[in-house]
């Protein structure tokens, strides 16, 4: 079987599950479809021979962030929130925003014209952990370290917000 067939299959699945995220009425179903979308995207990473990205995508998005999403949504009383939580105005605004983002993305991709790599000089191990690590710690060291500082600030901030002060109630 040709690799491109896998690609068509995966892309179709990705689009379908991404659509279902938007279309399903139950927020829990939406979150689960979103998790499935992440899996499809991980499949794309495998096709691009970027296994590290695939694993990290699953660990970080499917394994941690979406669990927290699910966690929060499960706390809601869904029956109370379902009808009429979206007015026509919000629906209209959402459509306009999403449509303009789509137009911008399509235009951007059309102008960039990402070049197809040359088969003779292309290194198939580009996406492997070793190469990624070397690039991150040599060429992009400063942005990488800045991102860690950003994460650290976010962590300290959340600890500060979550901390109970003397005299506060327990919950």
């Amino acid at each position: 079987m040709e690799v491109s067939n896998y690609w068509y299959f995966l892309s179709g699945l990705t689009l379908l599950s991404a659509l279902m995220v938007v279309l399903s009425k139950n927020p829990i179903h939406s979150v689960l479809y979103l998790v499935f979308t992440f899996f499809c995207i991980s499949g794309h990473y495998v096709l691009l021979n970027a296994q590290f990205l695939m694993a990290v995508n699953i660990i970080v998005y499917a394994g941690a962030i979406m669990v927290l999403f699910l966690f929060v949504i499960m706390m809601f009383d869904l029956k109370k929130n379902i009808p009429d939580s979206k007015t026509n105005l919000t629906k209209l605004a959402g459509t306009v925003v999403a449509g303009s983002v789509l137009v911008i993305l399509v235009a951007a991709f059309r102008t960039i014209q990402y070049p197809t790599p040359d088969e003779s000089t292309f290194n198939p191990n580009n996406g492997m952990v070793e190469n990624l690590g070397k690039v991150l710690y040599s060429e992009y060291l400063l942005p990488f370290e800045l991102v860690t500082v950003l994460f650290f600030v976010a962590m300290v901030g959340s600890v500060m917000l979550g901390k109970r002060e003397v005299g506060d109630r327990n919950f």
């Binding site: 296994q51 695939m54 699953i58 660990i59 499917a62 394994g63 669990v67």
Partner: peptide, 11 residues
């Protein structure tokens, strides 16, 4: 990425 696989499935 064996260890990351284990880790991902555990999560």
């Amino acid at each position: 990425i064996g260890i990351l696989w284990v880790f991902g499935i555990v999560s």
